[in-house]
Nucleic acid binder design. Sequence first.
DNA 1: TGCCAGGCCCTCTTTAGGGCCTT
Length: 208
Amino acid sequence: MSETVVVIDFETTGLSPEQGARATEVAAVVVSNGAIVDRYQSLMNAGVRIPPFIEALTGISNRMVREAPTAGTVMAELADFIGETPLVAHNAAFDRKFLQAELQRIGRPQRATMLCSMRMARRIYPDAPNHQLATLVRHARVAETGAYHRALADAEMTAGLWLKMRQKLEETFKLPSVPLALLDKIQSAPCNGLRGCVEAYRRSCARK
DNA sequence: TGCCAGGCCCTCTTTAGGGCCTT
């Protein structure tokens, strides 16, 4: 039994909302008891032009977005979908700033916590060639569910990676479960502090 | 094609610099 999380992924027109970048697509998948149990995905029309480089990167064209629901409509649906469930994203700092910026535009502050699968992977797979999502998916033998740089496929593969990392922690340290509180401590500790985090967690459990 | 930002992380470090990662 593991706590439910929502894995989220944004495709955007650039790297920073403060520089005018907007979301073009979002996906969120609910992960519960070791599997994806629900999905949300939508392109969104924020009324901005997608640069050619981003069109080539994601395959999301200006024409596709023109025919999509407005960003406000999609973000309201997304906010209802995720509620206050803890979130996970690959390089969460990136998705967090777009989630906050887009929700702020519709007056829906985001309260859920967000864990980072990339920070977690740096601690659990320190020997991976690098910690890009695509590399980690291959390294951890996660099923590839679609094209990279599309929101639903990236969210699903991040969810798969998340489940593999939890499984590896359980097997390596003989843990009956891996609570989010422990994962939060692991991702906040130094990269070489994984074992120390787990041992501290064991001691805290033994005292209870 | 890859710059734009910014937080994380390592090291030839901590009074800093540069690579990684996301689009």
